[in-house]
């Protein structure tokens, strides 16, 4: 509407919302480069807290664990989630039960899945560690991979499968040469999403990690540090983690856009 009053209100709302969303993050990033590391005063630009981070063995160990968990759970979830997506879309009839089962991991509160898995593992006397975190992360990761791949398959023109077999390709050839290339970007986007979720996931990892430092992941480390108090190193760590998420997100976004042809 060419109404300038309403137009100004719209701009005001946008400014307020974006300020609310970005000021806390900006403060954090800014502080991570503050030499004193404290919000009390700006004592000059410095990367010393990043350097300190790289010498912190606990943090590095946690980062390593996080990468192991994320890589393993992403690999399994991508395989299972893609197969699931194709299987569901291939079916002629929709089953409400299966839909609910696939949707559930995305909406069950983390805390409920966390305590459920903790009870399950401990009652079955399964020793907990990185492997149990991986098993747990696959549960929600496969649901997300499946959702991304299904979104692509929804707009997939199944007649090209028929066209391929009409032109003489076998079923396997058709899948390898026609279907997979078309959905490949969605699979990669789904995998990236899964990886990001796994890297960031805290509560379920916290409950299924078992005792001891050996299986502490980065978010668990961050949680411990935050509980301990504000330290300049967290600012630097937070900035790095956000930067990494940003890169992963940008990649996924690019791929997804290409798959949707938009």
């Amino acid at each position: 509407m060419p109404d300038s009053g309403a137009g100004r209100l719209v701009l005001l709302i946008l400014a307020a919302v974006f300020a609310f969303l970005y000021v806390p993050i900006a403060v954090l990033v800014g502080l991570s480069f503050n030499a004193s590391g404290l919000p009390t005063a700006w004592t000059g630009f410095s990367t010393r807290w990043y350097a300190a981070l790289l010498q912190n063995g606990e943090i590095l160990g946690a980062a390593r664990n996080t990468l192991i968990v994320a890589a393993a759970s992403t690999a399994i979830a991508t395989l299972l989630g893609t197969a699931l997506a194709v299987g569901v879309e291939l079916r002629r009839r929709r089953s409400r039960g299966i839909e609910a089962l696939i949707f559930a991991p995305m909406i069950i509160p983390d805390i409920v899945l966390a305590i459920a898995l903790l009870s399950f593992f401990s009652l079955l006397r399964i020793p907990m560690g990185l492997h149990t975190i991986v098993m747990a992360h696959v549960v929600f990761n496969l649901a997300f991979v499946c959702a991304v791949v299904r979104a692509r398959l929804k707009s997939f023109d199944w007649s090209i499968v028929e066209a391929s077999s009409d032109l003489g390709a076998s079923l396997v050839t058709t899948w390898v040469r026609v279907v997979l290339p078309v959905i490949a970007p969605a699979i990669v986007a789904g995998a990236l999403l899964a990886f990001t979720l796994s890297v960031d996931e805290f509560i379920i990892a916290f409950f299924t990690a078992g005792a001891g430092r050996a299986s502490i992941t980065l978010p668990m480390q961050v949680y411990a540090m935050i509980r301990f108090g504000v330290t300049p190193e967290i600012n630097a760590l937070a900035t790095l983690v956000m930067g990494a998420s940003l890169v992963a997100l940008a990649l996924a976004q690019r791929l997804n856009r290409r798959t949707l042809g938009a």
Partner: peptide, 25 residues
């Protein structure tokens, strides 16, 4: 049948590590 074959591993995973633990808790 192809569809069931493709879905089975993921559904088994969800059943074993989501449905059963939730039912248990």
């Amino acid at each position: 049948r192809g569809s069931a074959f493709l879905m089975a591993p993921a559904l088994a995973w969800l059943a074993g590590l989501m449905v059963v633990p939730c039912a248990l808790v």
